[in-house]
């Protein structure tokens, strides 16, 4: 089959199935979060009530935006401490059949912030670093709680738009509990069972050794005393050749973690190879289901938004903007990868698609998934805040690698992470109506609320915080020895590796250009700080807007009111997103993937 046709069919089937779930799931989420009596709440109600009683919480007690933010910060701050302690103490804790030692302090800090902030950036290899207890009681628990935090914040922000003359935006503890109990847990149980039925493993066995048929030779990178990779005079990594005929097969409770990894747009793999590992993602069906699970909640939240503000057309308009960005950039990723590498083609390597191969640039990709399913996964995982990978992003063509970079740098809002996607695009909607208001000389309004100075200041904090962290972090890293030491490919691609790392960390994605050796004190601290501030400062600004909007009176719709559910508004929204993204990041992108592309063209 023609690869373009194959990709188009895959993309269409994917979008049809996802969009078919938007309305029912969006309605279900709205019902659960607003306390509607549905089947899930009847079943889970006693557990929910018990949790409130044990924790001394009154779910009906409403919170101002600042109380909501402080509760959210307290909960997540404690989450960091617990996860840090679990890693540092794992050698003395149960469920550690490999007797893995305590994780280093800098890596524990990085991983704790990473999983609490829904980033799931992994500087370590899970199977050789973390015990089953830490994977389950630490990482998997935070997979649920960080995603639930995202949904809670999103619902609070939606209430800010939906309510009027109100000083409160809901109760964080109730929102957190409901999103975990009624949204994430049931979906995760179902998906975990389906994944297990397809071959994703779920056990507590010790790792198994298998003797390979052939002796394998590999290059072992050498590290200095500080853990940084050693380099020769030319700046290339120093490696030592080694051989083995033993392959260790890691085991573990993977299926249960895999489900929430995707549904919560977390992305942290049980194994280092993430969803490229056959125990995490064994078949094309699991690959499809994992992509579906990543985007379904973020897309559905647009309908939840529409329902909660009383006009579902508003939600469809946001979804339309998300879809335009998503489809356009997915197509670029596919075209770039399917075209292959001209330098390899010049050496006589066949990169043409046929019945026997996918063709194109297959470096870093699984042959069982091919170009189409890999390119779609690349877009899915970076259009959300997931960061799970089934292909190695560092091996993408320059323009193929540009796509995940841009998707992250635009703020991951097409459709974005669980919860984060909807509130991120709402911040751009606020900006969009503000720009429109400036153009026509009217006070900007959105959903019957005047957008005034305070909202614009908060939207500015929201929109500028992340780019500042990305660009400042990248600049510091390329100017200091510890930052440059991690680069695997000196030159523009090395710059891209660092830019990608900070784009991923600050936008809470977690995927990486894996050539960067990031498990060093410098990167563990720098990306740890980027993940925390990239997650929680925008959330605080968003909640502040929610609190301000909730307190406002609703303005009646008049002939002068700009409709925010039609193509004009969608175009305005897309224009705002692209304008901010382009102005902010094009200079940096020009130094990395763009110049790398031109170098490739020149070399050809």
């Amino acid at each position: 089959m023609n690869p373009t046709v194959q990709f188009s069919l895959l993309l269409c089937a994917f979008l049809v199935i996802v969009l078919a779930c938007v309305k029912p799931l969006g309605r279900y989420i709205a019902g659960c979060m607003d306390g509607e009596a549905n089947l899930a709440r009847r079943i889970g109600g006693p557990v929910e009530g018990l949790l409130y009683r044990v924790c001394g919480i009154d779910p009906a007690e409403e919170m101002s935006w600042s109380r909501y933010a402080l509760a959210m910060l307290l909960f997540n701050g404690l989450g960091v401490l617990v996860l840090y302690a679990l890693q540092r103490l794992q050698v003395w804790l149960p469920l550690n059949p490999q007797h893995l030692p305590a994780v280093s302090a800098d890596s524990s800090f990085n991983t704790a912030v990473s999983f609490v902030s829904n980033t799931n950036w992994q500087g370590y290899a899970g199977e050789s670093t973390l015990s089953y207890l830490v994977q389950m009681a630490g990482l998997a628990v935070q997979n649920f709680l960080s995603a639930a935090t995202g949904i809670a914040v999103a619902v609070a922000v939606i209430r800010g738009f939906a309510r009027h003359s109100s000083r409160t935006i809901g109760n964080f503890w109730a929102d957190l509990t409901r999103s975990t109990l009624y949204v994430l847990l049931p979906l995760s149980v179902v998906l975990a069972l389906v994944l297990a039925s397809q071959g994703v493993i779920q056990n507590f066995d010790a790792y198994r050794d298998a003797k390979t048929l052939e002796v394998q030779t590999y290059q072992n990178p050498q590290l200095d005393a500080a853990g940084n990779p050693l380099r020769d005079a030319a700046g290339n990594a120093v490696t030592v050749s080694a051989t083995t005929q033993t392959q260790t097969l890691p085991m573990g409770p993977v299926a249960s973690q895999e489900a929430i990894k995707e549904l919560g747009t977390n992305g942290g793999g049980f194994f280092n190879a993430n969803s490229a590992h056959p125990y995490e993602n064994p078949t094309p069906l699991t690959n499809f289901l994992e992509m579906f699970a990543i985007v379904v909640i973020p897309f559905a939240l647009t309908y939840t938004f529409g329902l909660m503000v009383g006009d579902t057309r508003q939600g469809w308009a946001l979804l339309a903007a998300m879809l335009v960005l998503f489809v356009a950039l997915t197509a670029v990723a596919f075209r770039s990868e399917q075209a292959g590498n001209p330098l390899i083609a010049a050496q006589g390597v066949d990169q043409v698609a046929s019945d026997l191969q996918s063709g194109g640039n297959m470096e870093g990709k699984e042959t069982r998934f091919g170009i189409a399913a890999s390119a779609l996964f690349v877009a899915v995982t970076t259009a959300t805040s997931c960061g799970a990978v089934n292909t190695m992003h560092d091996s993408l063509m320059p323009l193929g690698g540009l796509v995940p970079l841009i998707l992250m740098q635009l703020g991951e809002l097409a459709p974005g992470g669980v919860g984060t996607g909807i509130y991120s695009i709402l911040m751009f909607a606020v900006l969009g109506v503000f720009i429109a208001g400036l153009m026509i000389g009217r006070t900007p309004e959105y959903l019957g609320k005047k957008i005034e100075a305070f909202e614009m200041k908060m939207a500015s904090v929201f929109i500028l915080t992340t780019p500042f962290i990305v660009l400042f972090g990248t600049a510091v890293a390329v100017m200091c020895t510890a930052g440059v030491a991690g680069i695997a490919n000196p030159g523009p691609h090395g710059f891209s590796e660092i830019l990608y790392a900070f784009s991923s960390a600050a936008n809470n994605n977690g995927s990486a250009f894996g050539g960067l050796s990031a498990n060093t004190p410098f990167y563990n601290i720098a990306t740890g700080l980027a993940m925390w501030f990239g997650r929680f400062w925008p959330i605080v600004a968003t909640l502040a807007i929610a609190g301000s909007l909730a307190a406002k009176k609703r303005i009646p719709v008049t002939e002068g009111t700009m409709p925010t559910h039609g193509p004009l508004f969608v175009s305005l929204l897309l224009g705002s997103i692209l304008l901010i993204g382009v102005l902010t990041y094009v200079p940096a992108l020009a130094l990395g993937p763009i110049v790398e592309h031109f170098m490739l063209v020149a070399a050809r």
Binding site: S64, W65, S66, A69, L70, L73, G77, V80, L81, Y84, R88, A105, D106, S108, F109, A112, V113, R167, F454, K457, M458, V461, I525, G528, L529, W532, F533, F536, W537, V540, A541, A544, G547, S548, A551
Partner: peptide
Amino acid sequence: MDAVYLGMVAGVYLLTVGLVWALNRLRGPS
């Protein structure tokens, strides 16, 4: 070593709580 990283956690936490306080002051009592 742990004290350094736990101190860092406390630092970023307090800075974010400070942001809540500052934005709340900017807006006025909520």
